[in-house]
Design a protein around this nucleic acid. Sequence first.
DNA 1: AAACAATTAGAAAGCGCTTTCTCGCATTTA
DNA 2: TAAATGCGAGAAAGCGCTTTCTAATTGTTT
Lengths: 333, 333
Amino acid sequence: MPTIYEVAERAGVSLSTVSRVLNGKSSVNKALKERVDQAVKELNYRPNSVARSLANSRTDSVGVLVPELNAPFFGDLMQAVESTLRAQDKHVIITVGRNCLETEKDAVDFLISRNCDALIMHAEALSDDYLLDLNQNKLPIALVNRKVEGLPNACITLDNEKGGYLATRHLLELGHKNIAYISGPAYKADACLRLKGHERALIEAGLSVNPQLIFNGNYSEEDGKIGLLELMARDLPFSALVCANDWMASGAISCARDLGMSLPQDLSIVGFDDVVFAHHVFPRLTTVSNPVADMAEMSAKYILNKVYGQDHNVQHCFEPSLVVRESTINFES
Amino acid sequence: MPTIYEVAERAGVSLSTVSRVLNGKSSVNKALKERVDQAVKELNYRPNSVARSLANSRTDSVGVLVPELNAPFFGDLMQAVESTLRAQDKHVIITVGRNCLETEKDAVDFLISRNCDALIMHAEALSDDYLLDLNQNKLPIALVNRKVEGLPNACITLDNEKGGYLATRHLLELGHKNIAYISGPAYKADACLRLKGHERALIEAGLSVNPQLIFNGNYSEEDGKIGLLELMARDLPFSALVCANDWMASGAISCARDLGMSLPQDLSIVGFDDVVFAHHVFPRLTTVSNPVADMAEMSAKYILNKVYGQDHNVQHCFEPSLVVRESTINFES
DNA sequence: AAACAATTAGAAAGCGCTTTCTCGCATTTA
DNA sequence: TAAATGCGAGAAAGCGCTTTCTAATTGTTT
């Protein structure tokens, strides 16, 4: 690998001049510039990114924290972040948090130890205070799918309440009156908001919120099954079910089928997120789309603005929308 | 951020000594070592990884190239690589190749420019020669799911032929005699081998290979549909279908259902890869499991051996196995 | 006790770049 | 024409570490 010094020698200039040509920040005599460009080409010179980082204390790398990589939702997120950032010659260092506080902290420590210029996180377990600290420690961060008081700019969120509302209103419009709900865990803000939207839709329709029709799951496929069984055991009739994510909807669907129900005739089901498998499920899942890729791209743009002096428009709140497929049908009494 | 110099000062030793304590390569007087450790703790010192990399020309980073991130198969791959490597304090830089020669080359260039110590690739478009060149250029590489003559050690592969064989033998054992096959693209080695396995099973069973029962797809869901329609249009009866991956199987399934067939009674279908959605499909897909996570982990271990002087056992060829679910059933004439 | 070997600590060079500082030269102004 | 100004190019310091080389200290051998 040739160094900048060899380029300078071949071009017959000093290495400062080569650096200036390479970075284009200060002006260089045209003839010299051409000699340098020529030398660069001849030697097939590529600047050493490590040395450059050491000299200007910037690594052009952005740390990313996601709960897992082998899940469609986070795959979409990663894909968007990676392509947005790499288009600007930054790279991502990906770490996995596994929904676990210790692992997430380790991951952040690791990213810091790698001198990332900024962090983009989908943090599940880290506390608001921890995140505030991080940010005050002069490390720019962006938070996808999370709202932290005190970090209004860093947060890129979805209007989860509206999503929950859309799901339930869709069922109401189809004539359903008894609508069960399998929620995500109560300690997660998005789960609460989705539920709140569900309740608002009921109330707007003049119906009452019956806690007996609500089950608290943990967003897993398994809990979709358990939830459906539990709700049915409570012996209150319902003709439709909203699940707070697609995994639970998928669990509920296969459970329902195992119980001999025919879908969607016996039960209309709505999911949330519109992950890739939503249309593999049978019947194809009606769900609320979560524009995670857009949000992820936006978080990357926010970082590009904040750390690398670029100037993108950034939008902090995104809207979900309903995707009607075949798992919901008119209520026929 | 404190530097190694400040640690040395506080401990009252030279910075060489601090470095030695930190790296533990050469021996240091116990008392001094303790003073250094103490100083490190007091200052909360973290070595600057960039400076370290510059000094010893090693970045502790491994470049990874995958066709895409938002697909279950590559999600599994990434997850395994990331966790294996990070457990050893290395990090991955992920790039996306999109199945496109130019993009893949760009990605590799990018990774090289980032001074990765090694590359782990699931390369679709790069030629064997290109890969050989890379490797001869002193950059260690590992290739997942690919066999390149001349790089026997770098390749971590699946016995695709056996996988194809298992899929078809399963159907034969169920009594099927007319088995259609939707293949992957002929220019991909894995697709050819899977098909070859299918043919071997047929021949072993005393049946002949009828090209009219084979359709060449491109591994996409869409081509599963197109393939099934095309095969049916050829007007040769078949009671079972092998698809060379799960995406095409999923496409074929929804197409079959749209045609009013009932599955698996009217048609048994086998997929390949056992990606996460295989059990979301209805009927749940019988498929050939592809231990991609194991292979990915192994590729990471190979790199750990090769570049970082570790000593893991490495296995170069992996065995697929049949996962029987509900999309296949006995042939009843 | 003297001569030697074996350890261990410190000084200093070097990794490849960026950037400040300085100086020389060309251009402008009085 | 002399002084003032501006600009571009080179010298050199510095980013924070590793590692070689040298020197000093300790322990070992005869």
